Simulated assay, not measured.
Amino acid sequence: MKTITIADVARHANVSKSTVSQFLNQRFDYMSEKTKRKIEATIQELNYQPNFVARSLKQKSTFTVGVVVANILHTFSTQVIRAIEDYFHEQGFHIIVCNADDEPAKEKKYIEMLRAKQVDGIIIFPTGENQALYEKMKQDRFPIVFMDRTIEDLEISTVMLDNHAAAKLAVDRFVEHGLDRIAIVTTSIIRNISPRVERIEGYKRAMENRGLPIREEYIKTADVGQISEVLSELYSLPEPPQAILAGNDIVLVEVLKFMKEKDIAIPGDTSVIGIDDVSFASFFTPPVTTIAQPAVEMAKQAGTILFKQIKNSEQAEQWMYRYEPTLISRHSG
C-alpha cells in the first residue's frame, strides 16, 4: 500500500502543505473552523499517520517529556501524573512515565534511558542520591524540574508543598480538640527525602509553638512493611498517643488497618489526620480528616516551567515554588 504523505492530505483537502502542517502542530490562530474540519475529515478518510521521526528531525524536538516518579502508588503522584499529561497533551506533547520505586539505581537508569530517547525535558520526583546526574543535566542546560522533593544546593526549579505548614495544620487541629500526646509516623527518612524530613520539622516546630514537649518516642519513621511494628511500639508505651499524624497516604492506610485490627476506636481512642487527601477519606467510617495538596495546580506549574525551559532554554530566576496545604475537616481528627 502507498504511504500517505502530508502532500496527499493537502491535495485531497485542497489546501496547502503549510496549512496541513499548522493543523498537525495545533497552530489554529488563522485557520477557519471549516478548514480545520476539512483537514480532519481528510486525515481520517485517507488514514494518514504523521511521520513523527521526520517531524522530530525537522523541528529538533521529539515532542516528548519524561516523568520519573518516586513511587507511583502515592495518590499525590498519580494525580500529578494525570495533570502533567493533560497539560502536555494541550501542547501537542506525549509523556513517558517511569516509576523509580524510590531506588536511586532505578532512577538513574530511567533518566539515562529518557535522555537516550532524546526527550525534550524531564520532571523528576528525585530520590536525592543521583546528585552528579542532576548536576550534569543542569550543566547541559537540559530542561528539568523537580516535583515534591528538592535538593537545595542545586537550585533546580522545584515545585512542592509547604510541608511545615501541613504538619502545623494537623498539630493545631489536634490541640484545638484538647489533645497533647501527638505522634507522627512517616515512611523512612534514611535518604533525607525532603517532604518527610520537613513534615517532622514542621511537627516539632508546631509542638514547640503550642508549648508541648517533643517526645522522641512519638516520632516514628520506617519502611512501609514495618509501619505496623512501629505502631505497636507506640501503643506499648506507658502513655500511648492520643493522636497520630500520618505523614503520607500510604502511612495513613497502614495506620487505619492497624487500628481496625487492634480495635482502636477513631477518634474515641485515637484521633487521626493524614497528609494527602485520598479517595476513600470521605466515605471511610469515620470519615478521615486530611491535609490536601493542590496536586493539579502544582502539576500545571511544573509543566509550565518545563515547557518554558524547552522553548527558551532559560532558567527562571525563581527556583522554588511552594504551595499551601488545605485542611479537609472530617471526623477522625
Rank of each mutant, 00 (worst) to 15 (best):
I4V: 12
I6R: 05
A7N: 03
V9L: 05
N14H: 15
N14S: 13
V15Q: 07
S16Q: 08
K17G: 04
Q22V: 03
L24I: 10
L24R: 01
L24E: 09
Q26C: 09
R27F: 11
F28E: 01
M31W: 05
K34C: 11
T35H: 13
T35S: 14
K38H: 10
A41T: 11
A41D: 12
I43M: 06
Q44V: 07
E45W: 02
Y48T: 06
F52M: 10
A54E: 01
L57P: 03
K58S: 13
K58E: 06
S61F: 03
S61W: 13
G66K: 01
A70R: 01
A70H: 02
A70N: 00
E85F: 11
E90N: 03
G92W: 09
F93Q: 00
I95A: 14
V97P: 00
A100L: 09
D101R: 12
E103A: 13
A105E: 14
K106C: 04
I111Y: 01
M113C: 09
M113G: 07
K117N: 09
I124F: 01
E129K: 15
E129Q: 10
Y134W: 07
E135Q: 15
P143F: 10
V145H: 08
D148Q: 08
E155C: 05
E155W: 06
I156F: 01
S157D: 09
S157M: 10
M160P: 00
A165E: 03
A166Y: 01
V171N: 03
R173T: 15
F174I: 06
E176C: 07
E176N: 14
D180F: 15
T186K: 02
T186V: 13
T186L: 00
I190A: 14
R191H: 14
R191T: 15
N192W: 06
N192P: 02
I193N: 00
V197C: 00
E198R: 02
R199C: 02
E201V: 05
G202T: 00
G202E: 08
R205E: 15
M207H: 04
E208V: 15
G211K: 04
R215V: 07
I219R: 13
K220H: 11
D223N: 11
G225L: 08
G225M: 06
L231C: 12
L237S: 12
L237Q: 15
E239W: 10
L245S: 04
A246I: 04
D249A: 09
I250S: 06
I250H: 04
L252Y: 04
V253Q: 01
K257N: 15
D263N: 13
G268W: 06
D269E: 05
V272S: 11
I275E: 05
D276E: 11
V278L: 12
F280P: 04
S282Y: 11
F283D: 13
F284R: 05
T285V: 07
P287W: 04
T289F: 07
T290F: 09
V296K: 05
M298C: 05
L306A: 02
K308N: 07
Q309Y: 03
I310C: 00
N312A: 08
A316F: 08
A316N: 08
W319L: 08
W319S: 07
W319K: 12
M320W: 02
M320D: 02
R322K: 14
Y323I: 00
P325G: 07
T326V: 06
R330W: 12
R330Y: 09
S332P: 01
